[in-house]
């Protein structure tokens, strides 16, 4: 498997997209931190990159890469290689190289300009979100043979998690605003990896006090060991579960 991962990674590096991605993130991070060093405003902008750009790039790139390496996979399947090995290699190859690019791109400027717990949270969330969204994208891609449809599905999934889901939760908040719904909100928010990452990072910043009573409930939860383990466990589940489903489908798929 490691050999195939290596091939996938070489392939990604050769088309230079990932290097561009890395430089892009690095440039933006340096730019934002340079404008206002160490302030919470630049951290908020970085948060938006981690929550919007990283999942979007992961989703789009993983889907396109899956379709582009379709022939390569077919070729491999004519060899004595297991199907699960192939799709796992695809997964780890893509998410590995993307998260590596992200980690370098954002990590280097952060080490120089903004050390601290929030930076660690930003980096870890970015890396985990990369894995999560590559796995979601592959699930979308493996379901259809048509490239346009596959990319459409993946984009829709990205949009669902960044906007639609939150909109629905907001609606629920409105409808049940007279009830103590904090605990249920915690569950709702935990079910969305982007929200989970956002809340976990925001609670490390001093803007957390603006979140009022609900924020206090969340802060108590997320700043305890159980909460941290719970949150990271859920994020890991988000990276693993769609992938397991993908493998299941890919195994039975008529390529």
């Amino acid at each position: 498997m490691s050999r195939i991962i290596k091939y996938v990674m070489f392939d990604i590096l050769r088309n230079r997209f990932v290097i561009g991605y890395c430089l892009f993130i690095m440039l933006i991070t340096f730019g934002l931190l340079g404008l206002e060093e160490g302030s919470s405003k630049s951290t908020l902008s970085l948060l938006n990159i981690v929550l919007l750009v990283v999942p979007l790039i992961s989703v789009v790139f993983a889907t396109i890469h899956f379709y582009n390496s379709y022939e390569f996979m077919e070729l491999l399947l004519s060899q004595p290689v297991r199907r699960s090995t192939i799709i796992y290699s695809e997964y780890f190859g893509v998410s590995g190289s993307l998260s590596f690019a992200f980690a370098v791109g954002m990590g280097v400027p952060l080490i120089f300009l903004n050390q601290g717990l929030v930076s660690v949270y930003l980096l870890l969330s970015g890396i985990v979100l990369t894995f999560v969204f590559v796995s979601i994208a592959l699930l979308g891609a493996v379901n259809s043979k048509d490239k346009a449809r596959g990319i459409g599905t993946s984009l829709l999934l990205w949009f669902f998690f960044t906007a639609i889901y939150d909109g629905l939760v907001l609606l629920i908040m409105f409808s049940f605003s007279d009830y103590p719904i904090e605990k249920y909100l915690l569950a709702f928010i935990s079910l969305n990896p982007i929200d989970l990452a956002r809340v976990a990072i925001l609670l490390q910043m001093d803007t957390a006090v603006l979140m009022g009573y609900t924020g206090a409930v969340f802060s108590e939860f997320f700043n305890s060991w159980e909460g941290l383990i719970f949150a990271s466990g859920l994020l890991l589940l988000w990276a693993i579960l769609p992938m397991l489903l993908t493998v299941r489908i890919f195994k039975r798929k008529d390529l």
Partner: peptide, 17 residues
């Protein structure tokens, strides 16, 4: 205005929505 009326929505501070 939304946050004023439903304080729990402050949880969506700095979110894309």
């Amino acid at each position: 205005l939304i946050m004023e009326q439903v304080p729990t929505s402050l949880l969506y501070l700095h979110s894309f929505v």
